[in-house]
């Protein structure tokens, strides 16, 4: 078999996945069959494996015992300093251990009630921002058919699987301004949303901040609080799809909406600062909230 034979050409297209063990079983068997019968591809695979093994060897850097012991001590100290809510007997909304003593039928009945009752009594489950659930997206919020974007994907990823925060109070969050070069001073009032924290995120090789909040249920109601995440960025450096960020002055306070990975995202620019908000809210709420946090 020669390197230009159809078998080789097909194999070359998948050789990396073959090396990385990412082929479907049937394609893998076909690849193995080809490699067994083709000296050239056999050598190609051998070189690929040799390269992988050498990269592995070169990047092997075990920590010394002393460094590891230092590390463990710091981690233990950090653990003592920041006791886990679950260890203290309280449970975080996202991670608590669930001990549920309800029959399946009862759970189903409650679920059905949640689905049906809000339609019957629209005002009852209005949440922290009365009227938002019942309201359509404001007319001036332009819906943009959603092309996913790195920045928005990062926002949604951070919302769904948040990483540890860099700052958890107003002062430390404000301290992050030096990393992103724009102010981080607008927040929701505590009666509406509790600041969970903020962290610096790399977006398009620039830095932005993601600030997370928990919405305060209206009337102090119980239940797991809904979270929202706001990406605060410099629109001169970080570019959302152009249709989301039009810089002309007439549209300076225009909220634009899209969906990224199924989540609603509302975007607004004010005074040279970009805000993109997503979270456990519907589109209308996202629009209302981003307008609230971005407006002067």
């Amino acid at each position: 078999m020669t390197p230009s034979s159809p078998g080789c050409r097909s194999f070359v297209r998948v050789v990396e996945s073959f090396l990385d063990g990412e082929l479907e079983p049937s394609a893998l068997i076909e690849g193995e069959r080809h490699v067994a019968s083709c000296a050239h591809c056999r050598e190609r695979v051998a070189l690929g494996r040799a390269l992988k093994a050498s990269v592995r060897e070169l990047t092997c850097a075990p920590m010394g015992n002393e460094a590891r012991s230092r590390l463990r001590k710091s981690m233990e100290a950090e653990m003592a300093r920041t006791p886990s809510p679950r260890a203290a007997g309280t449970s975080s909304p996202r991670t608590r251990s669930a001990v549920v003593g309800l029959s399946f039928g009862l759970v189903a009945a409650i679920a059905a009630a949640f689905l049906v009752v809000p339609h019957l009594i629209p005002g009852l489950f209005a949440g922290p921002f009365p009227g938002l659930l019942a309201r359509e997206a404001p007319r001036e919020a332009l819906a943009v058919s959603g092309d996913d974007d790195d920045a928005l994907r990062e926002l949604v990823a951070e919302h769904v699987h948040p990483l540890p925060m860099d700052g958890i109070d107003i002062q430390t969050v404000q301290g992050l301004e030096q990393y992103i070069g724009i102010p981080l001073r607008k927040h929701f009032p505590p009666s509406r949303a509790r600041l969970v924290g903020a962290r610096i995120v790399p977006v398009q090789k620039e830095r932005a901040a993601i600030v997370q909040y928990e919405l305060v249920p209206e009337g102090g109601g119980a239940g797991a609080p809904r979270r929202i995440s706001v990406l605060v960025f410099d629109p001169r450096r970080i570019h959302l799809p152009s249709v989301l960020m039009r810089g002309d002055s007439q549209e300076i306070h225009q909220v634009r909406t899209t969906r990224t990975q199924g989540m609603p995202v509302a975007v607004m620019e004010d005074n040279g600062i970009g805000y993109a908000l997503s979270g456990d809210v519907n589109e209308a709420q996202a629009v209302e909230l981003v307008r609230y946090v971005a407006s002067p």
């Binding site: 950090e78 920041t82 809510p85 996202r94 699987h161 990483l163 540890p164």
Partner: peptide
Amino acid sequence: LLKAIKGRDQFAPGTNLRSWLFRILTN
């Protein structure tokens, strides 16, 4: 690792800790 400890409650059990840690590292 200190950030991971600090934010351990944000890690969803049953998901990939290694991947989560490397994400913190690269960020």
